[in-house]
């Protein structure tokens, strides 16, 4: 019975969430937030959602902590003192009470007769072996049954990254330069402080290729075990970001140039949508992979899912590394031109 384990992890989860809210030192809050993500990944595993846990561990404990820390490096690491306000507390309690009231009609946790399990889910579980021959049901649903959704989500990742590039790249702090030059300027930085820490240097040199290898495994083994394009993309990106943190942006730029990443970002979505268009040309419907192979519908679906997952992986990798580039590159641009605060106040 998992009850005590779940209860204990939930307890820790609430404690870390409260700590994140309470801590004034935002650096500390960011680190606790990483712990929070790791704990929630553990809980997802207990709830049988291994793929979700995988993603949360890589995204929440890895990339999001890096992003928050690099934001703090560009802003203020401390939050101002501020009294507890009662109006928000009242609103929050009201919303909470309404939601608890709402759950009273819900089927109990783990109830196999709940309506959610009666709709399309049995069909998906049934079809995994007969239609696809792919054991990981989550991959089937992600890439095929719900292929439209996933295409949309991948496009959102692309769009958000473009948004970050527009916000941190072109205008503002580096008004006189284009995107490429901002990142270019970042390369001229001094070597990072981490560069002088031998433990970090040696362990990164050893770990980065292994992480990449693991990323590839997650990408291609996603049909059989937990994993897939989203997780693999994030893991692959985390290896590159680790390299960037320790050896500096200029070194990372020699590994992958921002230009290359920009192309990859768009190419991934293009591969995904292109697979859909290819099935259209073979007299199928959009994203119906069965027609991709003349002889066997199952082989066609295998191929389709492989291509689509590859597209997702490429886009997510490029998106994460690009976002890191723009956050970390901002500092170099900023140090040259003081903020326009004075101008604004005057």
């Amino acid at each position: 019975m998992t009850f005590p384990i779940e209860a204990i992890v939930f307890l820790f989860l609430l404690a870390t969430a409260l700590a994140v809210t309470h801590l004034r030192d935002l650096f500390a809050a960011a680190m606790v937030f990483g712990v929070f993500s790791l704990l929630s990944a553990g809980l997802f595993t207990l709830m049988d959602a291994v793929d979700v846990a995988f993603t949360e561990a890589a995204v929440g404990a890895g990339i999001s902590t890096v992003l928050i820390l690099s934001t703090l490096a560009l802003t203020d690491p401390r939050e101002h003192q501020q009294p507890v306000r009662f109006a928000p507390v009242a609103v929050v309690l009201l919303v909470g009470a309404a939601l608890v009231y709402g759950t009273l009609d819900m089927p109990y946790y783990g109830d196999p007769t709940a309506p959610i399990h009666k709709h399309v889910a049995p069909e998906y579980i049934e079809g995994a072996m007969t239609d696809f021959g792919i054991p990981n049901i989550v991959t089937n649903v992600l890439a095929s049954y719900r292929g439209y959704d996933t295409l949309g989500e991948t496009t959102v990742v692309l769009t958000a990254t473009v948004g970050v590039m527009l916000l941190l790249g072109g205008l503002g702090g580096a008004r006189h330069r284009g995107d490429a030059e901002v990142v270019e300027a970042a390369g001229d930085e001094e070597p990072t402080p981490m560069d002088r820490v031998q433990v970090a240097r040696v362990s990164t040199t050893v770990l980065a290729p292994l992480i990449m290898l693991f990323g590839l495994y997650v990408q291609f083994h996603g049909d059989f075990g937990p994993g897939g394009g989203f997780q693999a993309g994030v893991i692959f990106a985390s290896a590159l970001i680790l390299h960037g943190i320790v050896f500096g942006l200029s070194s990372l730029k020699r590994v992958v140039s921002p230009r290359f990443l920009e192309i990859g970002l768009a190419a991934g979505v293009l591969i995904y949508a292109g697979t859909g268009v290819a099935s259209l040309f073979r007299d199928g419907t959009f994203l119906d992979y069965a027609v991709l192979d003349h002889h066997s519908a199952q082989h066609g679906r295998h191929l389709g899912i492989l291509l689509v997952e590859a597209g997702v992986g490429i886009t997510v990798t490029c998106a994460m590394v690009l976002i890191f580039f723009f956050f970390a590159g901002r500092r170099a641009a900023k140090s040259e031109e003081p903020g326009d605060r004075d101008r604004r106040v005057a």
Binding site: I125, I137, R146, V157, G228, F326
Partner: peptide, 26 residues
């Protein structure tokens, strides 16, 4: 098996979430 459908929807939501968080932070 536990229901795979919420897993799929939430898995993509996490990755989209980090992309939009990056947008918010920028």
């Amino acid at each position: 098996y536990s229901n795979p459908l919420p897993h799929v929807l939430m898995l993509t939501a996490i990755v989209v979430g980090i992309a939009t968080t990056a947008m918010a932070l920028s």
